[in-house]
Design a binder for these strands. Structure first.
Lengths: 221, 221
DNA sequence: ACTTCTATGATCGAGTTCCGCTCGGTGAGC
DNA sequence: GCTCACCGAGCGGAACTCGATCATAGAAGT
């Protein structure tokens, strides 16, 4: 169970994301082009002022092309969100490899950093956010992005740093992810670069919360 | 500065909420009837599948009536949210009066309880949530519901329980409110009655977080 | 290899449907 | 009778469809 396995792959949440999987080369470019356009437009006009026509025009495509790939307006934004989350995971993996990761806190800290970077660099992410509660299926915990991510992170922390795994760890991590997401969302609400006070407080809260259960960082079990 | 002053009144956020303030008796009933209908419908079909026609029909009114009171579709949902938040404040005041409130923690605990009650009893609140980040003005902290509420709560805690007031207290309370909102949202996502594990964890997190800054509950100051 | 040739993927955009919202006309309250 | 409240057909615009048209990959022929 490598890091790439844990953090790669499709999110569980995705209903049928695209109507037709593109096979030709140009269409793959179209698809990502549509999402790029959607990202820019959603940043400019907001979540519910965005129209399919805007996205199409910005991407240099026609309306029909948008609907070839996405069943409706919101599906486009959902896809945008999912792509961003995928990039988040990749960034976490990247940072876990490069920076020396010795304790479980280093890993969590990496995730927070990646999250912040994502908010800063990914257009539209401020709007679509990390988890979409609205149209997630109302069943198990893993159907939520936070739950899914918590699940994965629990795997890493248990395997790589010997934290005691199991449902308790997953539960606490899900709580942690929810908290981090909300504080960081707040940090970026009024400040495109992220209010450092909230970001710092987020790290502190995460650390205190998890240390409370899993002991000081230095002597992780 | 009494409790009722602090928690009553209109939220700062509200743009023009209603177009015309109703003067006759029946129209007041219509207005709340519209919100009741909106609450039920939004629970059934979700935030962006709800149509003004649905609300009108469910309330036994016509389209025109909806638009007499609310400028657009989202304003209805915003009004629904604001009414719910108002009820929340009233509930907090009520509980602060009835249950013996001796320490600052009692007050915070009351707020959490009221929040949980609100999620349980207020239709549509699961969907419209506590704070509406999307269309809140992007400026100061008090423009957000969480910031506004934190501000008020800070006033109470400082005045009534002698906590050291000022911007730091407000900041920490805003972080606390954001965390509580997210954890409780999660608690109610898949369980209409609220997952007790998340609710309990919410209390614990709040307590630990605030105790870290303001000392043990027994010896407040 | 190099060129057709063709099945199918991809694109387009006018047209349809549906929804948000207006407004002039009608009824109810003071 | 004067104003407030209500209605609902109708308008504009956005979501979404669908058959016609173009592009591409890869097979078949030379």
């Amino acid at each position: 169970m490598s890091l790439s396995d844990l953090f790669g792959g499709d999110p569980v949440v995705s209903g049928q994301q695209v109507r037709v999987e593109p096979t030709q080369q140009r269409s793959t470019a179209r698809l990502s082009g549509l999402l790029d356009a959607a990202a820019v437009v959603v940043d400019e006009v907001g979540f519910d002022r965005i129209t399919t026509a805007m996205v199409a025009e910005r991407a240099g495509a026609s309306i029909g092309t948008v609907y070839r790939y996405y069943p409706d307006r919101v599906a486009v934004l959902q896809a945008l969100r999912e792509r961003a989350v995928l990039r988040f995971r990749q960034r976490v993996v990247e940072q876990l490899k490069t920076s020396g990761t010795e304790t479980w806190w280093d890993a969590v800290d990496c995730a927070i950093t990646a999250f912040v970077d994502l908010y800063r660099s990914e257009p539209g992410f401020r709007i679509v956010h990390f988890a979409d509660r609205e149209r997630a299926p109302i069943s198990g915990s893993e159907d939520l992005e936070s739950g899914y991510f918590a699940h994965q992170l629990a795997g890493v922390l248990a395997e790589e740093f010997g934290l005691h795994g199991g449902p308790d760890l997953i539960f606490r991590l899900e709580v942690a992810v929810e908290m981090a997401d909300s504080i960081l969302s707040r940090a970026f609400h009024s400040d495109p670069h992220g209010d450092e006070r909230f970001i710092a407080e987020c790290r502190r809260v995460m650390r205190d919360y998890l240390v409370g259960y899993y002991g000081p960082v230095a002597a992780s079990v």
